[in-house]
Nucleic acid binder design. Sequence first.
DNA 1: AAGGCGGGGAA
DNA 2: TTCCCAGCCTT
Length: 380
Amino acid sequence: MSKTLITTFSENLIAWHARSGRSGLPWQGNRDPYAVWVSEVMLQQTQVATVLERYPRFMKRFPTVQKLAKAHIDDVLAEWAGLGYYSRARNLHACAQQVMKEFGGQFPSDPVMLEQLKGIGRSTAGAIAAFAFHKRAPILDANVKRILARLFGVEGAMQEKVINDRLWKLATDILPVKPKDMPVYTQALMDFGATWCTARKPVCLGHEKKCPFEKSCQANLSNQVLSLPQKIVKAKSPEFDCDMLLIRSGNSILLQKRPSKAIWGGLWSLPESVWVAKSPSRKTTPSIQNLFAAALPEEKASPWLRVCKTAQAGPQIKHVFTHRRLWMQIWYVSTSKLVEPGNEKLKWVPLKQLGRYGLPQPIKVLLQGLSLARGGDLKN
DNA sequence: AAGGCGGGGAA
DNA sequence: TTCCCAGCCTT
């Protein structure tokens, strides 16, 4: 590997950033550790375009680490709804309380200390330390992994420990010498990976722009740009069926709080059956009694079984996750009076208040269609 | 080391 | 459809 590349990289990258870096993003130029932290977590595995709308909203609702720490987790999850990876929201809330309790409301500046906090891994710790405290701490997100793998011709799967260690070492070796350069340098790395050294259409393979590293990039010199970093072949995601109960009484819907460990953890959703592997022969309508028993607690003593007479089949909704495909069969149920939930995980929610709850995206879409429909039957 | 955990945009 | 993304946590 080239010594000169290592020593000149940060300077050249910062020069590139002055010409071609992104600017005007709402979280840029902010040295408030709280603001930096929220943006870094929100941007984990999430596109800039998505965060662009959601970040200002979140900051307006929870302007300080104190206010976030004091908030109810349901309100944090409601604000996070639609962003995905909800453990981020749960950890964000827990981390805010950690910062209040263990650090007197001030984020630590040492990346090693930051990494001890909930939901902050090594890369996010590095980003916060660099942006908020000008620490010479490296980041290693997907952008940086791609840049380094290409620049230094690193072959092998990114999740292999040996490869990962090599990349962290490289990321550390190429840091700028002056701490004050860390914010612009870190931003430049992200910008370069996101806009020039991209996964599918890197500028070195086009004709319009000239990459400042074309003469020193191992992947470019050996015509391996698109094959680095090495891609991992993933198995086809498994498919599941489940039934969901849309129980309505007047203008209220019965929602159920989801367990925090599972998918959509901590969000409010419809009572649902167990997920079963999708089988092509699954055409029989489930016994509605069994469905209630599976979806609702204390089935024997519960009055719920009495309201099931009116159950009607609703739409079947397909939802695609990164690692799952789910077919949700909706069942409409009407009951004239509000049955006591008899369980703190269950709650009647007026249609007009649904916006206050953190709902899984497909459920939100389903219920929005409902609210827009004229009153009366759910099956309009 | 591998798998779980969302959602949207791009190709 | 599949791939990709400012990753982290658990097992």
